[in-house]
Design a protein around this nucleic acid. Structure first.
Lengths: 341, 341
DNA sequence: GATTTTTTGATTTACGTACATCAAAATTGG
DNA sequence: CCAATTTTGATGTACGTAAATCAAAAAATC
């Protein structure tokens, strides 16, 4: 049986009240006594029964999710997963609130973060906009002992405790290798459709993609990036235009959202040519396109996993517990038409 | 706040003791009274606080893992993950025991299962050997209300509550498409290395692989399967022999274990030719081979996820709780050298 | 050494549930 | 309607921890 506070008290030769004072860092314990207790804790290998403690405290975990107000399938999916998590709140003792901030607006994000420092949630998950002032605000909150995880888009160089999202450089590299290998010996040009080069995840995907293309597939040239602003209409226009004007395009990499427009353009303009297409994010549209061979592979991050992982990590950090690293690694899913879920 | 037993008692106009009798299906409650309580439970949306209940009961979850005594990297990895889970036992209230049975031996598996029915663990996870008598034994245990999940290898058509493993037909299909697409327009023969055609997961992978090959890549012919018994030495011998004798081989699909031998054979015999190779299971050896381009892609199932998922599902079933389906789906990982963890 | 201050002990209640006991009430059978 | 039986209520203890109170002991101060 695992030791309890009573065992610690007995072993350290002190009362239960003193053990409690040490465990919950309450004042009024002499240094030597504290050490006695801590030694007993170490020697008996005591670990607090979190379930019992939470029961006694009536503890809940007030968590805040900060999301950009973007109107695309991925963000809708992410929102839906958070709502699912809210439904599980009572069983998980969480109390989840979402805050929407204008997309790509560091100042707005910073001001929300600053407000939160007064509200005292026990954890914050945010889709980070990559800017120095955001990094500073996050670092400040971390120093004030708020558990913070970045979600989907990381904030490299900040003090955030954890990143619940995929490695976007690796994603771009993987896309490049898949595209290059699928094209085999064919030479030609590659169109890249992104949302915006102002977003870190898109920049990173492109960076990885371009690197592998340059290293390993010299026969394939990347055309200037089309910035579709994650908007289906804009994407459609840009891709249709590129395909009309450039007969040398043999492949397309869509690293952002707005794939509905991409798919429409492909169906209109590429019926007569063999195009290899790799896109990000599995949605109803990209799934259908994968099945009817319009798209050849889909790279995906599972929003449900990201949300659940963020919650687990925030709770663990709030309790000062360890996380299972391998469990919290968000994997890049590669879907061909054969392994769709 | 979520309702407690007290709220139910008040709402149903009965005492706490009666609510307890209903909740824990103890005898001595009239039918009408039981209905009153059940109505109150439904109307207030009461759900038992599992943490508090476990505390009161001093409950632990005695779980049994039944594994084949196979000496290959994957099984070693699976064992290691179970040991990790054992380390978390006290926090998770589990009490995990593993039983090794001879591989590919239905009778041995059945006799272990029958013993377990006396021991009364609260959940059983087994790597199933696909045989009618095993299916019957599992079904019997399920009828006796034991939660049972299959691990890594399923038992289709049985009553097991859950399968914690990948869809092997999809895995085979995916391997075929990757191989076919990587080979592009090249024609030739494909060598397939399996462990044994007596194991269901290997049969299924081959089935999926052969189906897609036949449908979509008529230029590629599958050679008779090499059965390496998941043994590196045997695998080496078989592959080396096949490569020496058949100059038309352009691709290899290794769907079982024993990849150490495969890799050695490839390095010895295929230096002068361009071979596309897809293998299963990420190990130190296959990882190195992927990095040095001996292997082109690795399909993997994450043993850690499988073990953790099996435990979560067994605990949930033991408590009669729902599982998060999407969370428990074991995904097929596809690794290129760019997205290695 | 007396006084103040700090530290420690003893004890209680609470969290939500499980489980046991005994008495009281209601129902059933004859 | 009485007795036997079944059903229900009231109550207490337990699980492991948190948190509070008050008294007692020890240490520090002068």
């Amino acid at each position: 049986m695992r030791p309890t506070v009573h065992d610690i008290a007995a072993a350290a030769g002190v009362s239960l009240a003193t053990v409690d004072r040490v465990l919950n860092q309450r004042p009024g314990v002499r240094h030597v006594t504290r050490e006695k207790v801590e030694t007993a804790i170490r020697e008996l290998g005591y670990v607090r029964d979190v379930a019992a403690a939470n029961l006694a405290k009536g503890r809940t975990y007030p968590l805040v999710f900060i999301l950009p107000a973007s109107d695309n399938s991925f963000m809708h999916g992410l929102n839906a997963e958070i709502r699912q998590a809210v439904l599980r709140s009572s069983a998980e003792r969480t109390d989840i609130r979402t805050i929407e901030v204008p997309a790509f607006d560091p100042a707005a994000l910073v001001s929300v973060l600053e407000e939160l420092s007064r509200e005292k949630p026990c954890g914050i998950a945010l889709v980070a906009t990559d800017a120095p002032e955001v990094r500073a605000a996050v670092d400040r909150l971390v120093r004030e002992r708020f558990p913070i995880v970045t979600l989907v888009s990381d904030l490299t160089g900040s003090l955030r405790h954890h990143y619940a999202g995929v490695d976007n450089i690796a994603a771009g590299r993987t896309a490049a290798r898949l595209l290059g290998r699928f094209l085999g010996s064919r030479k030609g040009e590659i169109a890249v459709l992104a949302g915006s080069m102002l977003v870190r995840d898109h920049r990173e995907r492109l960076e990885g993609f371009a690197a592998v293309m340059a290293e390993e597939f010299p026969g394939l040239a990347i055309l200037p990036v089309l910035e579709g602003r994650d908007d289906p209409e804009v994407a459609h226009m840009l891709v249709a235009d590129a395909l009309s004007r450039n007969a040398g395009i043999v492949g397309v990499y869509s690293l952002g959202a707005g794939n509905r427009g991409l798919i429409r353009a492909l169906k209109e303009k590429a019926v007569d040519r063999i195009l290899t297409v790799i896109a990000h994010e599995l949605t109803a549209h990209t799934r259908a396109a994968l099945i009817d061979n319009t798209i050849d592979a889909i790279l995906n991050q599972d929003a449900g996993h990201e949300v659940r992982s963020a919650i687990r990590v925030l709770k663990a950090k709030a309790d000062g517990l360890a996380v299972i690293e391998a469990q919290e690694r968000i994997r890049l899913d590669i879907f061909l038409k054969d392994n769709l879920p």
